[in-house]
Simulated scan of single mutants.
Amino acid sequence: MNVLLVAPLLLVVAGVAAGWFLPRVTSPASSVRVLTVATVVAAAGVAAALALVVLAGASELHDVSSWLGWCDALYPGDHGAAPWAGALAAALLVVAARRARRYLSRSRAEMAAFAAVEGVEVIAAAGAVAFAVPGSPGGVILGDELVRTLSRDERQAVIAHEHAHLDHGHHRYVHAVETCAAAFPFLVPLARQVRFNTERWADETAASAVGSRTLVARAIARVALLGAPSPAPGVLGFRSLSAAARVEALLRPSTPVRLTLPAAASTMTIVTTLAGSSVQLHHLVFFLDHACR
Rank of each mutant, 00 (worst) to 15 (best):
M1S: 12
P8W: 04
P8Q: 09
L11Q: 10
A14C: 05
G15T: 08
V16H: 02
A17N: 05
A18T: 02
G19W: 03
L22R: 08
T26A: 15
T26M: 15
S30L: 14
V32W: 03
V34C: 07
T36W: 08
T36V: 02
V37F: 14
A42I: 03
A42F: 01
A43W: 00
A44H: 04
A44M: 11
A47V: 09
A48T: 07
L50I: 05
L52A: 12
V54Y: 06
L55C: 14
A58Y: 05
L61E: 13
H62P: 06
D63H: 09
S66C: 03
L68Y: 06
C71Q: 13
H79G: 06
H79E: 14
P83Q: 12
W84P: 00
A85Y: 05
L88E: 10
A89D: 02
A91N: 04
L92R: 04
L92H: 02
V94C: 08
R101H: 00
R101E: 01
R102K: 08
L104R: 10
L104D: 02
R106T: 06
R108V: 00
M111A: 14
F114I: 08
V120R: 09
V122S: 07
A125S: 13
A126L: 10
V129E: 03
V129S: 07
A130Y: 06
A130E: 04
F131V: 04
V133A: 07
G135H: 11
P137H: 07
V140N: 04
I141S: 03
D144R: 10
D144E: 08
D144T: 05
V147Y: 11
T149L: 07
R152V: 12
D153S: 13
R155I: 13
V158T: 07
I159L: 10
I159Q: 07
A160T: 06
H161Y: 02
H163C: 05
H163V: 08
H168P: 00
G169Y: 04
G169T: 08
H170P: 01
H170Q: 03
H170E: 04
H171T: 05
R172K: 09
R172S: 04
R172M: 06
H175Q: 13
A176P: 01
V177F: 00
E178M: 11
T179Q: 00
F186M: 12
V188E: 13
A191F: 06
R192G: 13
R192S: 06
Q193C: 09
R195D: 07
F196V: 09
N197R: 11
A202F: 00
A202P: 02
T205Y: 04
A207Q: 04
A207I: 01
A209L: 11
A209Q: 14
V210I: 12
V210N: 02
S212N: 12
T214V: 14
V216P: 02
R222K: 15
P229N: 13
P229L: 12
S230E: 15
P231E: 10
P233E: 12
G234V: 05
G237I: 05
G237S: 11
F238E: 05
S240D: 15
L241V: 11
S242Y: 14
A245C: 05
V247N: 01
E248I: 02
R252N: 15
P256L: 12
P256G: 11
V257F: 13
R258Y: 01
T260L: 11
L261Y: 08
A263P: 04
A264R: 11
S266Y: 03
M268Y: 03
T269P: 03
I270V: 13
G276V: 08
Q280M: 10
L281Q: 08
H290N: 15
C292E: 08
